[in-house]
Design a protein around this nucleic acid. Structure first.
Length: 943
RNA sequence: GCCGACUUAGCUCAGUGGUAGAGCACUCGCUUCACACGCGAUAGGCCACAAGUUCGAACCUUGUAGUCGGCACCA
């Protein structure tokens, strides 16, 4: 059969996913073992408007590696997928589209029509991200796909809102809030990004004092807000202003008279020591106003233009135009003292980058105190959740909870969960699960629902349990010390009844994988609501992955246009290579993206392809059979080192390596050290399996051995060897599968002898696929003798190759290897693998003899274990070169010997260091001393 | 202002209280029948700097410098 020389990922990527999905491999129901342990993980729901970026790809890869690994280990596995309605982003996107297509604003068409448009948009474009998730190869259960706006999850949202309201944790209040004048909605503190302004200025405005010649200067970065000033504050201890306290100011540009008050908040050293107080437009000023009962004067509209209260000269002006005009007027009046350059950071809307306007506004807030205390208690008593890496994320999480402020949960949007609160004509509030329920409570049908929707994160906070069917009717185990849930919910609607037990089976989840930027926004809130509403923590472990930076170490951003599109990388190098690259970066650490890195994993995929190609080209009479591995090797002690024996030393050794690697990979994944697992697999497959094993057994496999064995025996040995190599390959593919699902499935399917009998016992009746095979566990068995003996062979071959290269021996020239060794194990190893040594070292003979018999004109080297070798170079030897070669080696060894001598002659070391360590160094000292003497003699002989 | 992380080969990064590692790039040699996306062989580092703890420090402690984050404040 013709097999391509290079792996083309396209075909594998196109073929397997649909089959996996269709045959139900991703759903937990595939597991037939009623006693199977469960493993569950929920995807951080990407925005329905979103497209895949590198951060997703990294996060998704880690989750899928864990899921595929656990599934192969026999766990009943659920990787739950879904998308977030992403209130602001989606509304913005559809608004833009509406404007483009119909030249209309949302207000033009009204709320109902607009939300209908959004749903249309969602149905049309909302699957972009889910298609991309399929492309990534994620083994998520699409039959349980969720959307935060679907009925079930909305029920959960209403239930939580009602319950928190009834318990008094949700309230409506008037506060200074973060207002985005462009999106015309309030934002939570976490949706606001502080950024340095380019041309910040500090304006010094002079305020005349009533009934005095004195004037007071205040400094401000926002002069336009002076129109809303209702006081000027000074520090009560400030000698400069003490006498002014209680007097009033004639506020310029207005006809108002405002008091001079004293408040500790004012720092005398800053600015002029006098602060203008604008309670309706600054959070600190608002605090002061509450203490002093100051008047609140709102001078701005919700689009950041000035309103009537600002005076008719300013009404209608944009805030920046008003600023200029105020400054101009002050200058005209001679009341502008100076303008200084001043570095100022301003809050910006995370989504649209508009400068936030602090505004006095009536909103819904959630007081998280009780839930916060539960979360902190869980953290302190059980160290849960555990963060990986723990530093610094545990601290960020703790500090945030400790300083938690009330959460602004209402948004002035149309796309989202409309707040389940209704008002009667007198403005009384009725919070209920439905209008019918509200009507019952109100005793009237004449109700209007609150216009606002909830912060998108309100529904995200419930994600781990709302997606699994929680609707408030589930009793839920209540952890001791935690308050019991509120009154039963009469309006709760049962949904997804066939999956109703998911909550019981899969909640809490096992691990959460997410980025550090949403620890506070999301992780903390899931913990809080999870504890409160289910009585259980939503997950045990939280893996915080790093940030993928561009090749210059810069954060990727749309404005810098330095983003790397994962889909382009998939296209160029394949999904599997990309996944290896992402999983191969250390957990939690930021790293700069390098195409070269993916390229090397693309090469790795190709290496695997070619190893497979070799095995397949020589697979006649062979089939995958894991039983032959250990059973066959068990009898090895009796027959090891037989020439062309099967199993041979190489067989023995590669299985030792496989078992060790499997053990280490399992451990690495258990501790979330993905990069460690990747390194182990890369090294095992490339160096051990391809570099040594294939080369060592190649001749047996291809039938090119020159042995004295009878032909029938030769065939038996050959087909056994073929089955073994193909079995080792199959085991390797299983180990690689969680990382490289497409390639491994593609290759596995075509191996002879594979079938569902290789599946983990939990999946025996499923259609054959590598993703359901048993993940090799490895064990603690060590075959030290095999590894040690193999080291002798490897060292011998390497030393001969080194001599060949350094002495410029043509690759077509065969050499003779003269070996002087005393260790019987070593001698056995060399004799038993003579054919392989000859081939790999390009030699035609091995001579065992005393070093005194070594031909004079030889290049020489020493081996570990007091052995020497010589390569005769009759006529070809360059004595100068050989002398310098030997000198360099002696020099290197001597440096090490000096260090050892120094250490061992240090009485303190010998006395205090562990005896084991001291012995180790002594042995090394003897070994090196011996080698130096031998090399020295050889060098001497050349003089 | 406070807190944290990072600083290791030319580049990107692993790493452990006891001889410093990988991939890529570089140098030399190979069209060897799985693979040139390959094979073989080299070269390359006082592990940012300084002090301390220790028999022993790249690793632990403290300080310094640089880089990058987070938080707070910003009249």
């Amino acid at each position: 059969m013709e097999i391509a020389k290079a792996y083309d990922p396209k075909e594998a990527e196109e073929h397997h996913y649909a089959r996996w999905e269709a045959s139900g491999c991703f759903a937990p129901e595939i597991n037939e073992n009623p006693d199977a342990e469960k493993f569950s993980i929920v995807i951080p729901p990407p925005n329905v408007t979103g497209t895949l970026h590198m951060g997703h790809a990294l996060q998704h890869t880690l989750m899928d590696v864990l899921t595929r690994w656990k599934r192969m280990r026999g766990y009943r596995t659920l990787f739950l997928v879904g998308v977030d309605h992403a209130g602001i982003s989606t509304q913005l996107m559809v608004t833009r589209q509406l404007k483009k297509d119909e030249h209309k604003s949302p207000q033009d068409i009204g709320r109902e029509a607009f939300t209908e448009k959004v749903w249309e948009w969602k149905n049309k474009y909302g699957d972009v991200i889910t298609r991309q998730i399929r492309k990534e190869g994620l083994s998520v259960d699409w039959s349980r796909e969720r959307f935060t706006m679907e009925e079930g999850l909305s029920t959960a949202v209403r239930e939580v809102f009602v319950r928190l309201y009834e318990e008094g944790w949700i309230y409506r209040g008037t506060r200074i809030v973060n207002w985005c004048p462009r999106d015309k909605t309030v934002l939570s503190d976490l949706e606001v990004k502080e950024e340095k302004a380019k041309d910040g200025k500090l304006y010094y405005l002079v305020y005349p004092i009533k009934g005095a010649d004195e004037k007071l200067t205040v400094a401000t970065t926002r002069p336009e807000t002076m129109l809303g000033d209702t006081a000027v504050a000074v520090n009560p201890e400030d000698e400069r202003y003490k006498h002014l306290i209680g007097k009033t100011i004639l506020l310029p540009l207005t006809n108002r008279e405002i008091p001079i008050i004293a408040d500790d908040y004012v720092e005398s050293e800053f600015g002029t020591g006098a602060v203008k107080i604008t309670p309706a437009h600054d959070p600190n000023d608002w605090e002061i106003s509450q203490r002093h009962n100051l008047e609140l004067l709102v001078v701005m509209n919700d689009d950041a233009t000035m309103n009537e209260a600002a005076g008719k000269n300013f009404a209608g002006l944009d805030r920046y135009a008003a600023r200029e005009k105020v400054v101009m007027e002050f200058e005209k009046l001679g009341l502008l003292e100076k303008i200084e350059d001043y570095e100022v950071t301003l809050p910006h809307c995370e989504r649209c980058k508009t400068v936030i306007e602090p505004l006095l506004s009536e909103q819904w807030f959630a007081k998280m105190d009780e839930m916060r205390d539960q979360a902190l208690k869980l953290l302190r008593e059980e160290n849960s959740p555990r963060f990986f890496p723990e530093v610094p994320h545990k601290k960020v999480y703790t500090l945030w909870l400790e300083n938690l402020r009330d959460w602004t949960i209402s948004r002035q949007l149309w796309w989202g969960h409309q707040i389940p609160a209704w008002y009667d004509k007198d403005g009384n509030i009725f919070v209920a699960h439905s209008k019918e329920e509200a009507a019952l409570k109100a005793g009237t049908e004449e109700l209007t629902q609150d216009n606002d929707v909830l912060d998108t994160w309100f529904s995200s906070a419930l994600w781990p349990f709302s997606t699994m069917g929680w609707n408030g009717s589930e009793p839920g185990a209540i952890a001791p010390g935690f308050s019991s849930p509120g009154s039963k919910n009469p309006g709760a609607i049962a949904f997804g009844s066939d999956k109703a037990s998911d909550l019981e089976t899969f909640y809490p989840t096992d691990v959460l994988v997410t980025g550090r930027d949403i620890i506070r926004l999301w992780v903390s809130r899931m913990v809080m609501t999870g504890l409160k509403f289910t009585g259980k923590k939503p997950f045990d472990d939280v893996i915080i992955h790093g940030t993928v930076l561009d090749k210059n170490g810069q954060r990727m951003s749309k404005t810098k246009n330095n983003g790397i599109d994962p889909l382009e990388v998939f296209e160029k190098f394949g999904v599997d290579a990309t996944r290896m690259t992402l999983a191969g970066s250390a957990t939690g650490i930021d790293f700069a993206w390098r195409d070269e890195k993916v390229e090397s994993y693309r090469n790795f995929a190709n290496k695997i392809w070619n190893a497979w190609r070799f095995c397949l080209m020589n697979s006649e009479g062979a089939s995958v059979n894991p039983d032959i591995l250990e059973t066959d090797l068990r009898s090895l002690k009796d027959q090891r080192n037989q020439p062309f024996g099967s199993p041979s030393l190489a067989d023995w050794w590669i299985e030792a390596r496989l078992i060790k690697t499997a053990k280490a990979v399992n451990f690495a994944l258990d501790t979330y050290q993905f990069h460690e697992a990747v390194q182990l697999l890369y090294h095992f497959f490339w160096d051990d399996f391809c570099g040594w094993y294939i080369e060592l057994v190649k001749d047996v496999i291809t039938g090119e051995i020159q042995s004295e064995l009878p032909a029938e025996m030769k065939l038996v040995v050959q087909s056994k060897a073929r089955s073994r190599i193909i079995t080792i390959l199959e085991q390797s593919l299983r180990l690689l599968h969680p990382f490289m699902p497409f390639l491994t499935e593609e290759l596995w399917q075509q191996l002879p002898g594979v079938g569902s009998h290789l599946h983990n016992p939990a999946y025996r009746s499923a259609e054959k696929t590598i993703m359901l095979t048993e993940f090799p566990r490895g064990n603690d068995k060590t075959w030290e003798a095999a590894e040690r003996t193999m080291t002798y062979v490897i060292e011998l071959i390497s030393k001969v190759r080194n001599i060949r290269a350094e002495m410029n021996i043509k690759s077509s020239d065969k050499v003779a290897i003269h070996i002087a060794a005393v260790d019987t194990e070593m001698l056995d190893a060399f004799r038993g693998n003579e054919a392989q040594i000859l081939k790999l070292a390009k030699a035609d003979s091995i001579v065992f003899e005393n070093p005194s018999k070594f031909p004079k004109a030889s290049a020489k080297a020493v081996l570990t274990g007091n052995a020497e070798i010589a390569i005769p170079l009759q006529g070809l030897i360059d004595f100068d070169k050989e002398r310098s070669r030997l000198s360099v080696q002696i020099e290197k060894l001597d440096i090490e010997l000096q260090r050892l001598n120094g250490q061992l002659s240090n009485a303190n070391f010998v006395e205090k260091a562990p005896a084991e360590k001291v012995n180790e160094l002594r042995e090394r000292q003897v070994e090196i001393g011996q080698q130096i003497r031998t090399l020295g003699n050889n060098l001497e002989a050349l003089k």
